[in-house]
Design a protein around this nucleic acid. Structure first.
Lengths: 191, 191
DNA sequence: TATAGCATGTAATTAGTTACATGATTAA
DNA sequence: TTAATCATGTAACTAATTACATGCTATA
């Protein structure tokens, strides 16, 4: 049995008291989404597999006459989550971001379009920051009990990172604009 | 014909004057790797496909008696790269990072292990920063001609982001350590 | 009464990685 | 002479997304 990150999204959500597959997807969309997107076609097979392997148990939990399954961690499931959290093997960072890849190859563009690209990246960082601070963090702060602090900490790390990128790209944009205004145009630039 | 990010790694590398599939992989490993990892099993079929669709042309380019293919962009290939760079549709940021996911679920850990997790994440950020600044950026600065600046800019953005995370996590680590030392232990914390 | 949301799943497709296979050349 | 690097590809597998399919319930 091998586990990947989506496995631990499911185990972690169950640990936080989320019970059904549908609810895991909903809560993930309003929280871990910004770290790792999760789809229902991952969640349901993963729950079935975790049950087969004894990390979770399932019971019927109908909502009125609408049927529903409630899952909870077994001791083994809790242990697996802890082992993962404690594991010293942390995979390397990688941005996997198409926007940053565009920045890498931006030399092919004329100066004007380079600046436009940087502006778009900055605006995206600003929007992501605003989204996290306005839509994600408040609900995480209010909905989770006092002893649950790390969802908010992780959300702040994300929001602060976007804010950092916004500043970083604003500075780059300003520098590029100044160069363009002063007529400084390095040879070979442009399409 | 649909294109994804790996397609543009290939087109972008060809635009920068890299010629063979093997060389694309090598250069990517020393540059775009930190944004988007690239494997040979992606590069070769992608080159074949781009040739079929007329975005690149291939010619024999033997190295001594060892055979080799040299690819270069067609006008259509250059246009496709420019269209992508100019496209206003920028996919949303997402971290896709297992380390940050661990942070999100760290409430299950006892205080001591929470601090250890944060320390590991900080050390990983420090190592990634050092790697970029020491191994990646110098070669990008020396190897690329003067009119090619964006590989270095993207590399700096990456390195500065890691440096930011290092500071951010150091601050969090210090705060957690202080709380632990002062005996402040919120109810419900721990495994 | 019809739309949105709750709830659970499978099928098909697309994407990506790892392993396999081959062979030449160069440097230790 | 042997290990590393150059060079090109395919096969097999693993992972992830999108689309499909179904049916109930609450609300506008």
């Amino acid at each position: 049995m091998t586990f990947r990150a989506p496995t631990y999204v499911v185990l972690g959500m169950l640990r936080l008291g989320v019970k059904s597959g549908y609810a895991i997807k909903k809560v993930a969309d309003a929280s871990t989404q910004f770290i790792l997107p999760t789809s229902l076609a991952q969640v349901y097979p993963e729950l079935a597999r975790l049950e087969r392997e004894g990390l979770v148990t399932r019971r019927e939990d109908p909502n009125g006459s609408r049927k529903r399954s409630a899952y909870q961690l077994t001791d083994e499931g809790r242990a697996a989550l802890l082992r993962w959290l404690r594991s010293t093997r942390v995979p390397p960072f990688q941005f996997r971001d198409e926007g940053m890849l565009r920045l890498y190859f931006a030399d092919s563009l004329p100066r004007e379009d380079q600046i436009a690209l940087i502006r778009r990246l900055r605006e995206r960082a600003r929007d992501a920051k605003t989204h996290l601070r306005r839509d994600i963090l408040p609900s995480a702060e209010s909905q989770s009990p006092a002893e649950v602090r790390f969802p908010v900490i992780a959300g702040r790390m994300g929001a602060d990172t976007y804010a950092y990128w916004e500043r970083w790209l604003a500075r780059l944009e300003a520098e590029m604009g100044k160069e363009a205004a002063s007529g400084h145009n390095p040879p070979g630039s442009g399409a």
